[in-house]
Design a protein around this nucleic acid. Structure first.
Lengths: 170, 170
DNA sequence: TAGTTTATGTCAGCCTTGTTGACTTTCCAA
DNA sequence: TTGGAAAGTCAACAAGGCTGACATAAACTA
Protein backbone atom coordinates (compact mmCIF):
# COMPACT_ATOMS: atom_id res chain seq x y z
CA UNK A 1 0.00 0.00 0.00
CA UNK A 2 2.95 2.28 0.44
CA UNK A 3 4.25 1.23 -2.96
CA UNK A 4 3.19 4.00 -5.28
CA UNK A 5 4.91 5.08 -8.46
CA UNK A 6 5.83 1.54 -9.44
CA UNK A 7 5.20 2.54 -12.97
CA UNK A 8 7.35 1.72 -15.93
CA UNK A 9 7.60 4.53 -18.43
CA UNK A 10 9.39 4.36 -21.74
CA UNK A 11 10.87 1.03 -20.68
CA UNK A 12 12.58 2.68 -17.69
CA UNK A 13 12.02 1.35 -14.15
CA UNK A 14 10.85 3.92 -11.62
CA UNK A 15 11.29 1.55 -8.68
CA UNK A 16 13.74 4.02 -7.15
CA UNK A 17 10.80 6.38 -6.57
CA UNK A 18 8.75 4.05 -4.36
CA UNK A 19 7.73 5.35 -0.94
CA UNK A 20 9.99 2.72 0.56
CA UNK A 21 13.03 3.97 -1.35
CA UNK A 22 12.16 7.55 -0.41
CA UNK A 23 11.89 6.56 3.25
CA UNK A 24 15.32 4.97 3.09
CA UNK A 25 16.68 8.18 1.62
CA UNK A 26 15.12 10.13 4.46
CA UNK A 27 16.53 7.87 7.12
CA UNK A 28 19.92 7.90 5.43
CA UNK A 29 19.95 11.71 5.60
CA UNK A 30 19.06 11.58 9.28
CA UNK A 31 21.78 9.14 10.29
CA UNK A 32 24.40 10.54 7.93
CA UNK A 33 23.95 14.08 9.23
CA UNK A 34 24.78 12.79 12.69
CA UNK A 35 28.05 11.43 11.38
CA UNK A 36 28.64 14.60 9.40
CA UNK A 37 28.61 16.78 12.54
CA UNK A 38 30.07 14.30 15.04
CA UNK A 39 33.78 15.03 14.61
CA UNK A 40 33.68 18.84 14.67
CA UNK A 41 31.19 18.67 17.56
CA UNK A 42 33.77 16.88 19.70
CA UNK A 43 36.40 19.55 19.06
CA UNK A 44 33.88 22.34 19.64
CA UNK A 45 32.73 20.85 22.94
CA UNK A 46 36.32 20.85 24.23
CA UNK A 47 36.66 24.56 23.50
CA UNK A 48 33.22 25.45 24.82
CA UNK A 49 31.75 26.31 21.45
CA UNK A 50 28.78 24.94 19.55
CA UNK A 51 27.77 24.15 16.02
CA UNK A 52 26.71 27.75 15.47
CA UNK A 53 30.28 28.90 16.03
CA UNK A 54 31.54 26.34 13.54
CA UNK A 55 29.16 27.56 10.87
CA UNK A 56 30.22 31.17 11.38
CA UNK A 57 33.92 30.26 11.25
CA UNK A 58 33.39 28.17 8.13
CA UNK A 59 31.68 30.83 6.09
CA UNK A 60 33.87 33.70 7.27
CA UNK A 61 36.82 31.60 6.16
CA UNK A 62 35.16 30.95 2.82
CA UNK A 63 34.44 34.60 2.16
CA UNK A 64 36.93 36.71 4.10
CA UNK A 65 35.81 40.31 4.47
CA UNK A 66 32.15 39.39 4.21
CA UNK A 67 29.64 41.58 6.01
CA UNK A 68 27.41 40.60 8.92
CA UNK A 69 24.36 40.96 6.72
CA UNK A 70 25.78 38.65 4.08
CA UNK A 71 26.65 36.02 6.67
CA UNK A 72 23.13 36.32 8.05
CA UNK A 73 21.64 35.46 4.69
CA UNK A 74 23.89 32.46 4.18
CA UNK A 75 23.29 31.03 7.64
CA UNK A 76 19.56 31.69 7.58
CA UNK A 77 19.30 32.88 11.18
CA UNK A 78 18.35 36.17 12.82
CA UNK A 79 20.91 38.85 13.49
CA UNK A 80 20.31 38.48 17.22
CA UNK A 81 21.20 34.81 17.01
CA UNK A 82 24.28 35.42 14.91
CA UNK A 83 25.34 38.39 16.98
CA UNK A 84 25.56 36.31 20.12
CA UNK A 85 27.88 33.85 18.44
CA UNK A 86 29.89 36.53 16.65
CA UNK A 87 30.38 38.53 19.82
CA UNK A 88 31.98 35.63 21.64
CA UNK A 89 34.19 34.86 18.64
CA UNK A 90 35.40 38.48 18.49
CA UNK A 91 35.87 38.63 22.27
CA UNK A 92 37.90 35.43 22.15
CA UNK A 93 40.07 36.83 19.37
CA UNK A 94 39.06 34.34 16.68
CA UNK A 95 37.29 36.82 14.43
CA UNK A 96 38.09 40.41 13.50
CA UNK A 97 35.32 42.90 12.64
CA UNK A 98 36.53 45.97 10.73
CA UNK A 99 34.40 48.98 9.88
CA UNK A 100 34.02 49.28 6.11
CA UNK A 101 35.92 51.84 4.07
CA UNK A 102 33.25 52.72 1.54
CA UNK A 103 30.24 52.13 3.73
CA UNK A 104 31.08 52.73 7.36
CA UNK A 105 27.87 51.07 8.56
CA UNK A 106 29.20 47.70 7.48
CA UNK A 107 31.50 45.42 9.48
CA UNK A 108 33.83 43.28 7.44
CA UNK A 109 34.60 39.96 9.09
CA UNK A 110 37.73 37.87 8.83
CA UNK A 111 39.45 35.19 10.86
CA UNK A 112 42.45 36.02 13.01
CA UNK A 113 45.31 33.58 13.06
CA UNK A 114 43.79 31.82 16.06
CA UNK A 115 40.50 31.69 14.21
CA UNK A 116 42.15 30.15 11.18
CA UNK A 117 43.79 27.55 13.38
CA UNK A 118 40.50 26.45 14.91
CA UNK A 119 38.70 26.57 11.59
CA UNK A 120 41.38 24.38 10.08
CA UNK A 121 41.11 21.84 12.89
CA UNK A 122 37.32 21.68 12.53
CA UNK A 123 37.28 21.49 8.78
CA UNK A 124 40.07 18.92 8.72
CA UNK A 125 38.10 16.70 11.05
CA UNK A 126 35.02 17.05 8.89
CA UNK A 127 36.92 16.58 5.66
CA UNK A 128 38.56 13.47 7.03
CA UNK A 129 35.24 11.70 7.33
CA UNK A 130 34.01 13.06 4.02
CA UNK A 131 37.22 11.93 2.32
CA UNK A 132 36.89 8.41 3.69
CA UNK A 133 33.26 8.25 2.57
CA UNK A 134 34.08 9.63 -0.89
CA UNK A 135 36.99 7.25 -1.33
CA UNK A 136 34.96 4.23 -0.28
CA UNK A 137 32.05 5.22 -2.51
CA UNK A 138 33.99 6.18 -5.62
CA UNK A 139 33.70 9.11 -8.05
CA UNK A 140 30.41 8.14 -9.71
CA UNK A 141 28.69 7.78 -6.34
CA UNK A 142 30.09 11.15 -5.26
CA UNK A 143 28.71 12.79 -8.38
CA UNK A 144 25.29 11.30 -7.65
CA UNK A 145 25.49 12.37 -4.03
CA UNK A 146 26.13 15.96 -5.05
CA UNK A 147 23.39 15.93 -7.66
CA UNK A 148 20.71 14.69 -5.27
CA UNK A 149 21.75 17.08 -2.49
CA UNK A 150 21.62 20.03 -4.87
CA UNK A 151 18.14 19.01 -5.99
CA UNK A 152 17.05 18.80 -2.37
CA UNK A 153 17.93 22.43 -1.61
CA UNK A 154 15.49 25.31 -1.70
CA UNK A 155 16.13 27.37 -4.85
CA UNK A 156 17.53 30.25 -2.81
CA UNK A 157 19.94 27.90 -1.01
CA UNK A 158 21.00 26.38 -4.30
CA UNK A 159 21.80 29.85 -5.60
CA UNK A 160 23.97 30.55 -2.55
CA UNK A 161 25.60 27.13 -2.77
CA UNK A 162 26.57 27.69 -6.40
CA UNK A 163 27.69 31.26 -5.75
CA UNK A 164 30.07 29.93 -3.08
CA UNK A 165 31.42 27.34 -5.46
CA UNK A 166 31.96 29.85 -8.25
CA UNK A 167 33.78 32.28 -6.04
CA UNK A 168 35.89 29.55 -4.46
CA UNK A 169 39.38 28.35 -5.37
CA UNK A 170 39.80 27.05 -8.90
CA UNK B 1 47.58 25.00 -1.45
CA UNK B 2 44.34 23.40 -0.44
CA UNK B 3 44.63 20.99 -3.36
CA UNK B 4 45.96 17.82 -1.84
CA UNK B 5 45.36 14.32 -3.12
CA UNK B 6 45.59 15.40 -6.74
CA UNK B 7 47.32 12.13 -7.39
CA UNK B 8 46.62 9.77 -10.20
CA UNK B 9 46.83 6.13 -9.20
CA UNK B 10 46.53 3.18 -11.52
CA UNK B 11 45.40 5.53 -14.28
CA UNK B 12 42.41 6.62 -12.19
CA UNK B 13 41.84 10.31 -11.40
CA UNK B 14 41.46 11.12 -7.74
CA UNK B 15 40.45 14.70 -8.42
CA UNK B 16 37.17 14.05 -6.62
CA UNK B 17 39.12 13.79 -3.36
CA UNK B 18 40.64 17.28 -3.44
CA UNK B 19 40.03 19.50 -0.43
CA UNK B 20 37.96 21.70 -2.69
CA UNK B 21 35.65 18.86 -3.71
CA UNK B 22 35.34 17.78 -0.07
CA UNK B 23 34.42 21.31 0.93
CA UNK B 24 31.72 21.38 -1.71
CA UNK B 25 30.39 18.12 -0.32
CA UNK B 26 30.33 19.61 3.17
CA UNK B 27 28.51 22.73 2.05
CA UNK B 28 26.08 20.65 0.00
CA UNK B 29 25.21 18.66 3.14
CA UNK B 30 24.65 21.87 5.08
CA UNK B 31 22.33 23.48 2.56
CA UNK B 32 20.54 20.27 1.61
CA UNK B 33 19.74 19.42 5.21
CA UNK B 34 17.97 22.75 5.49
CA UNK B 35 15.77 21.79 2.56
CA UNK B 36 15.33 18.31 3.93
CA UNK B 37 13.73 19.61 7.13
CA UNK B 38 12.00 22.71 5.78
CA UNK B 39 8.65 21.20 4.75
CA UNK B 40 7.93 19.14 7.88
CA UNK B 41 9.14 22.05 10.02
CA UNK B 42 6.40 24.26 8.61
CA UNK B 43 3.70 21.72 9.46
CA UNK B 44 5.17 21.14 12.91
CA UNK B 45 5.30 24.85 13.67
CA UNK B 46 1.57 25.15 12.92
CA UNK B 47 0.79 22.42 15.43
CA UNK B 48 3.22 23.69 18.03
CA UNK B 49 5.64 20.79 17.72
CA UNK B 50 9.32 20.64 16.87
CA UNK B 51 11.70 18.44 14.96
CA UNK B 52 12.14 16.18 17.95
CA UNK B 53 8.44 15.30 17.82
CA UNK B 54 8.75 14.45 14.15
CA UNK B 55 11.65 12.12 14.78
CA UNK B 56 9.77 10.31 17.53
CA UNK B 57 6.65 9.94 15.38
CA UNK B 58 8.70 8.69 12.46
CA UNK B 59 10.49 5.93 14.31
CA UNK B 60 7.49 4.84 16.37
CA UNK B 61 5.64 4.50 13.09
CA UNK B 62 8.51 2.51 11.66
CA UNK B 63 8.65 0.09 14.58
CA UNK B 64 5.27 0.00 16.31
CA UNK B 65 5.41 -1.47 19.82
CA UNK B 66 9.01 -0.38 20.28
CA UNK B 67 10.18 0.46 23.82
CA UNK B 68 11.35 3.82 25.04
CA UNK B 69 14.83 2.44 25.46
CA UNK B 70 14.97 1.21 21.91
CA UNK B 71 13.79 4.55 20.59
CA UNK B 72 16.42 6.22 22.73
CA UNK B 73 19.19 4.28 21.04
CA UNK B 74 17.93 5.08 17.57
CA UNK B 75 17.50 8.78 18.22
CA UNK B 76 20.78 9.14 20.07
CA UNK B 77 19.48 11.44 22.80
CA UNK B 78 19.09 11.05 26.55
CA UNK B 79 15.98 9.44 27.94
CA UNK B 80 15.13 12.68 29.72
CA UNK B 81 15.14 14.54 26.43
CA UNK B 82 13.02 11.95 24.72
CA UNK B 83 10.68 11.69 27.68
CA UNK B 84 9.65 15.31 27.44
CA UNK B 85 8.72 14.95 23.80
CA UNK B 86 7.03 11.63 24.38
CA UNK B 87 4.99 12.98 27.26
CA UNK B 88 3.47 15.76 25.19
CA UNK B 89 2.72 13.32 22.37
CA UNK B 90 0.95 10.98 24.79
CA UNK B 91 -0.91 13.85 26.46
CA UNK B 92 -2.05 15.10 23.06
CA UNK B 93 -3.27 11.64 22.15
CA UNK B 94 -0.87 11.05 19.26
CA UNK B 95 1.07 8.24 20.91
CA UNK B 96 -0.02 5.37 23.12
CA UNK B 97 2.34 3.97 25.77
CA UNK B 98 1.37 0.54 27.09
CA UNK B 99 3.06 -1.12 30.04
CA UNK B 100 4.77 -4.30 28.88
CA UNK B 101 3.25 -7.72 29.58
CA UNK B 102 6.45 -9.58 30.27
CA UNK B 103 8.45 -6.72 31.70
CA UNK B 104 6.31 -4.13 33.43
CA UNK B 105 9.16 -1.62 33.46
CA UNK B 106 8.91 -1.26 29.72
CA UNK B 107 6.50 1.00 27.82
CA UNK B 108 5.53 -0.13 24.36
CA UNK B 109 4.87 2.77 22.02
CA UNK B 110 2.54 3.02 19.06
CA UNK B 111 0.78 5.77 17.16
CA UNK B 112 -2.91 6.43 17.69
CA UNK B 113 -5.02 7.25 14.68
CA UNK B 114 -4.42 10.95 15.21
CA UNK B 115 -0.71 10.19 15.47
CA UNK B 116 -0.76 8.27 12.24
CA UNK B 117 -2.54 11.16 10.53
CA UNK B 118 0.11 13.67 11.58
CA UNK B 119 2.95 11.29 10.81
CA UNK B 120 1.54 10.75 7.35
CA UNK B 121 1.26 14.48 6.70
CA UNK B 122 4.85 15.06 7.83
CA UNK B 123 6.32 12.17 5.95
CA UNK B 124 4.36 12.98 2.82
CA UNK B 125 5.72 16.51 2.85
CA UNK B 126 9.24 15.22 3.28
CA UNK B 127 8.83 12.48 0.70
CA UNK B 128 7.50 15.01 -1.78
CA UNK B 129 10.74 16.91 -1.83
CA UNK B 130 12.81 13.73 -1.80
CA UNK B 131 10.79 12.35 -4.69
CA UNK B 132 11.29 15.49 -6.76
CA UNK B 133 15.03 15.42 -6.05
CA UNK B 134 15.30 11.70 -6.86
CA UNK B 135 13.32 12.10 -10.05
CA UNK B 136 15.41 15.04 -11.23
CA UNK B 137 18.66 13.30 -10.37
CA UNK B 138 17.88 9.86 -11.78
CA UNK B 139 18.44 6.33 -10.45
CA UNK B 140 22.24 6.23 -10.76
CA UNK B 141 22.60 9.49 -8.84
CA UNK B 142 20.23 8.17 -6.16
CA UNK B 143 22.33 5.04 -5.76
CA UNK B 144 25.45 7.15 -5.34
CA UNK B 145 23.67 9.43 -2.88
CA UNK B 146 22.76 6.46 -0.71
CA UNK B 147 26.22 4.95 -0.92
CA UNK B 148 27.99 8.12 0.19
CA UNK B 149 25.52 8.79 3.01
CA UNK B 150 25.93 5.27 4.32
CA UNK B 151 29.70 5.65 4.30
CA UNK B 152 29.37 8.89 6.22
CA UNK B 153 27.54 7.29 9.14
CA UNK B 154 29.18 6.12 12.34
CA UNK B 155 29.36 2.31 12.27
CA UNK B 156 26.74 2.04 15.01
CA UNK B 157 24.36 4.29 13.05
CA UNK B 158 24.96 2.27 9.91
CA UNK B 159 24.01 -0.87 11.79
CA UNK B 160 20.75 0.74 12.95
CA UNK B 161 20.07 2.14 9.51
CA UNK B 162 20.44 -1.27 7.92
CA UNK B 163 18.44 -2.98 10.65
CA UNK B 164 15.55 -0.59 9.95
CA UNK B 165 15.74 -1.31 6.24
CA UNK B 166 15.80 -5.08 6.78
CA UNK B 167 12.80 -5.02 9.07
CA UNK B 168 10.89 -2.66 6.79
CA UNK B 169 8.28 -3.46 4.13
CA UNK B 170 9.53 -5.60 1.27
C1' DT C 1 18.92 70.05 4.13
C1' DA C 2 15.33 67.27 6.38
C1' DG C 3 13.49 62.94 6.50
C1' DT C 4 13.84 58.04 5.45
C1' DT C 5 16.10 53.86 4.81
C1' DT C 6 19.84 50.65 5.76
C1' DA C 7 23.41 48.12 8.52
C1' DT C 8 24.54 46.90 12.72
C1' DG C 9 24.29 46.17 17.61
C1' DT C 10 21.89 45.43 22.06
C1' DC C 11 18.50 44.26 25.74
C1' DA C 12 14.85 41.44 27.33
C1' DG C 13 12.27 37.46 27.15
C1' DC C 14 10.44 33.27 25.16
C1' DC C 15 10.73 28.27 23.25
C1' DT C 16 12.73 23.84 21.90
C1' DT C 17 15.76 20.46 22.79
C1' DG C 18 19.87 19.04 24.36
C1' DT C 19 22.38 17.98 29.01
C1' DT C 20 23.18 16.02 34.22
C1' DG C 21 21.65 14.52 38.72
C1' DA C 22 18.48 12.45 41.79
C1' DC C 23 14.66 9.56 42.38
C1' DT C 24 11.01 5.50 42.00
C1' DT C 25 9.49 1.22 40.37
C1' DT C 26 10.38 -3.13 38.60
C1' DC C 27 13.01 -7.12 37.54
C1' DC C 28 16.48 -10.54 38.08
C1' DA C 29 20.21 -13.10 39.88
C1' DA C 30 23.38 -14.29 43.61
C1' DT D 1 15.55 -12.21 49.98
C1' DT D 2 18.15 -8.71 48.97
C1' DG D 3 21.16 -5.81 46.20
C1' DG D 4 22.15 -4.19 41.74
C1' DA D 5 20.64 -3.08 37.17
C1' DA D 6 17.25 -1.33 34.08
C1' DA D 7 13.18 1.65 32.68
C1' DG D 8 11.09 5.65 33.33
C1' DT D 9 10.13 10.33 35.65
C1' DC D 10 11.06 14.99 37.71
C1' DA D 11 13.92 19.15 38.24
C1' DA D 12 17.16 22.32 36.79
C1' DC D 13 20.40 24.16 33.57
C1' DA D 14 22.59 25.58 28.83
C1' DA D 15 22.80 26.37 23.83
C1' DG D 16 20.88 28.48 20.30
C1' DG D 17 16.88 29.35 17.77
C1' DC D 18 13.01 33.13 17.84
C1' DT D 19 10.35 37.94 18.35
C1' DG D 20 10.01 42.74 19.68
C1' DA D 21 11.73 47.18 20.88
C1' DC D 22 15.12 50.43 20.53
C1' DA D 23 19.84 53.02 19.53
C1' DT D 24 23.26 54.66 16.47
C1' DA D 25 25.53 55.86 12.54
C1' DA D 26 25.78 56.22 7.72
C1' DA D 27 23.75 56.59 3.32
C1' DC D 28 20.34 57.98 0.32
C1' DT D 29 16.54 60.95 -1.50
C1' DA D 30 13.03 64.26 -2.22
Amino acid sequence: MAETAQVVTRGESLLFLTDDQLRKGIEAMFFAYRGFTADPDRILAEKGYGRAHHRALHFINRAPGTTVNNLLTILGVTKQSLNRVLRTLVEDGLVEAKVGNKDKRERHLRLTEAGETLERALSEAQRGRMRAAFRAAGPEAVAGFRTVLEQMMDPECRRQFNALSDGGPS
